[in-house]
């Protein structure tokens, strides 16, 4: 065998190994986290950790439920804001927008998706937090003094501020996924609806959205799993003070990623503290992996159906 075949073989093997290595990283991380978290699991029941919001590390009580629900609360708010926004924009881009305009909008959208979270965080502090404090909070909290609007947090650093910043961050990503899903629908399907005299809106509503529904769901889940893991921007605007279970969109919240970033490495003198933080990280990882797998499952299924 001559030298170039050896090189070929070597390159192939090497690249395969690298690929395996990258894949095994995920398992290594998961296993490592589990290993590090096991002391806190051994010390108390996992139910007490997952379902209690009693977080007093110095007394050995590590209830993570407040952080978990805080994460879901902020993410939920982000989704409520981001989904209609993304969906309508994606519909415009896929169904109505002339190609030339789309060619301008899409790169801008990608640019938005690429901006560093810290920048979004600064923008959140400068714009979104005052907006919540001076306008949204007085309006809603005054007019609807009940769940989920009632609050006595007048700072503006709140779940809503976190949700809004997150929504803006995941919107470009969701738009581009949704638009791709919609444009993947064969052109003939549109034509046959329009040929029967349907308007573009009727076609979108009755045909396109129906065909695209699974893909749109997948896009939302992917956006959601990004939002769940997002740390920096949320940390800067969500207040990060523990309030137990969420009671208002205007209260502060303390999502899991913020907890990890804020406290890991700082409170190491407290016994089991690092194990509890590792557990928090593990939970975050599991949520993200499950969401991503669900979303890619749906997308792969769609792709196979179209071919």
């Amino acid at each position: 065998m001559d030298i170039r075949h050896w090189k070929d073989l070597l390159a192939r093997r090497l690249m395969f190994l690298l690929c395996v290595f990258v894949l095994s990283l995920l398992f290594c991380i998961a296993w490592g986290l589990y290993h590090k978290a096991s002391p806190v699991l051994a010390a108390g029941s996992w139910q007490a950790i997952l379902f209690s919001s009693d977080w007093h590390p110095s007394q050995g009580r590590f209830g993570l439920a407040g952080f978990i629900t805080g994460t879901l609360w902020v993410t939920g708010l982000a989704v409520v804001v981001a989904v209609p926004l993304s969906l309508l924009t994606a519909i415009f881009l896929a169904e109505y927008c002339p190609v030339r305009l789309r060619d301008v909008i899409k790169p801008v959208m990608e640019l938005l998706a690429g901006i560093s979270p810290v920048v979004y965080g600064v923008w959140g502090v400068l714009v979104v937090v005052p907006l919540v404090r001076d306008h949204l909070m007085p309006f809603f909290s005054g007019r609807f003094p009940f769940f989920p609007f009632a609050s006595d947090n007048y700072t503006g650093f709140s779940a809503l501020a976190g949700g809004l910043v997150l929504a803006v961050m995941v919107t470009p990503f969701m738009i581009s996924l949704m638009e791709e899903v919609m444009r993947g629908i064969p052109f003939g399907v549109r034509e046959s609806s329009l040929a029967l005299g349907a308007t573009s809106w009727q076609t979108t509503k009755k045909v396109i959205l129906k065909k695209a529904a699974p893909g749109i769901v997948a896009a939302v889940i992917l956006g959601l799993s990004r939002a769940i893991g997002e740390t920096m921007a949320v940390l800067m605007v969500a207040g990060c003070a523990l309030q137990g279970f969420p009671r208002s969109i205007f209260d502060t919240t303390y999502p899991l990623p913020a907890l990890i970033a804020n406290t890991y490495g700082e409170m190491m003198s407290v016994p089991l503290y690092d194990a509890a933080i590792m557990l928090a990280a593990l939970i975050l990882l599991i949520i993200t992996v499950v969401f991503n797998m669900a979303a890619w499952g749906i997308l792969l299924h769609l792709e196979r159906r179209e071919t």
Binding site: V189, E191, S193, G197, K206
Partner: peptide, 29 residues
């Protein structure tokens, strides 16, 4: 205008719904 012309394309393009709904789609819109 389009209501006055039925179109059959090169590949049949059924709409993502039942047989019944396909037939009445035009009437419904």
């Amino acid at each position: 205008l389009r209501k006055r012309m039925g179109l059959l394309s090169q590949r049949p393009q059924v709409l993502p719904m039942s047989i019944y709904e396909n037939v009445v789609y035009g009437l419904r819109v």
